[in-house]
């Protein structure tokens, strides 16, 4: 029974991995705590649901939802990130929180606050291995998130675009001096981050057969926790953190009941922030002064 819980935890963790990945790209490359990501996660799941209701095939709905999320993310780049390039970190953080409130309340005002049932488009396919039951949607989300992680690692390491991104993360001025078109690279980073988050939202809907305006708040913020636990800016940290949070959540539901999840997850986060703020796989932060 505990093995089944571990499997469920890892599968839930796969979703957190995607959100954590979206956050970690924004903070690692742009030093931007992009709080619109939980909103994009919700927008991904919600837009897919709305389109399916209008009769669009589910895979087409998912693709359109990802494009919508990417477009919103470009607006975040234009309105939250770009105006405050030289300012302190608080202004873009707050402005992106504004986007989160905007997305959430737009859905609340148009669709309502109810949790909506998402159709089981993948049917009732289940893999049975030994005594374990693994759903097709679970396998799909784990596979997609792993492909994304490995793809990102390879792309960052050995493509020209990846080198450009890493040099911007290192020093924006030097990157500009070396002839990198920073203004063209950054929007692409926003699009990648948004598509990752929204894909997480779509997979969440496929897995748990539900969407709601608050799904970003519930799941997206655990993605923040996952990112910090793993280490900000580290891709593999996001993987480790996401899986850890997923397992911690499922186990605490199993052992202590559903209401204790937030104590377990955010308590873990709080302790880690105090003891080891750079996270499990992160590098210690460089001190700016002294």
């Amino acid at each position: 029974m505990i093995a089944q819980q571990l499997v469920n935890g890892v599968m839930l963790g796969a979703i957190y991995v995607m959100v954590a990945l979206a956050f970690t790209l924004a903070i690692g490359i742009l030093n931007f705590m992009n709080f619109s990501i939980p909103g994009l996660f919700m927008a991904g799941g919600m837009a897919t649901w709305i389109l399916i209701h209008r009769g669009v095939p589910w895979w087409a709905a998912a693709v359109v939802a990802l494009i919508v999320a990417a477009a919103i993310s470009l607006a975040v780049e234009r309105l939250s990130y770009r105006p405050s390039n030289e300012g302190d970190v608080e202004v873009p953080l707050v402005s992106s929180l504004g986007f989160l409130v905007l997305l959430q309340s737009l859905v609340l005002a148009t669709v309502g606050s109810d949790q909506q049932a998402f159709p089981a488009v993948l049917g009732d396919l289940n893999l049975r291995i030994g005594g374990l039951v693994i759903g097709a949607a679970q396998v799909l989300s784990l596979a997609i998130s792993m492909v994304l992680v490995i793809g990102l690692t390879v792309a960052l390491k050995s493509t020209s675009f990846g080198r450009q991104i890493r040099s911007i993360a290192e020093s924006r001025e030097t990157a500009t001096l070396l002839g990198i078109d920073v203004g063209a690279v950054i929007p692409r980073v926003f699009v990648i981050s948004a598509v990752t988050a929204a894909l997480g939202g779509v997979l969440f809907a496929l897995n748990y057969l539900q969407v709601s305006p608050f799904m970003g708040e519930n799941v997206g913020f655990k993605g923040v926790a996952a990112m910090i636990v793993g280490g900000m800016g580290s891709v593999w940290g996001a993987v480790l953190g996401g899986l850890l949070i997923g397992v911690a959540e499922v186990l605490s539901i199993r052992l202590f009941g559903a209401d204790t999840v937030d104590i377990a997850v955010y308590g873990l986060l709080l302790v880690l922030l105090v003891v080891r703020p750079q996270g499990l796989l992160g590098k210690p932060p460089a001190r700016e002064k002294l």
């Binding site: 405050s84 707050v94 504004g98 986007f99 409130v101 905007l102 609340l108």
Partner: peptide, 22 residues
Amino acid sequence: VGAGWRYVLFALFIIGFMAVRP
């Protein structure tokens, strides 16, 4: 404005303000 739309309005206000008057 209705209860639902007040937060939409507020969020738009925040985003606009942070862009022009941070």
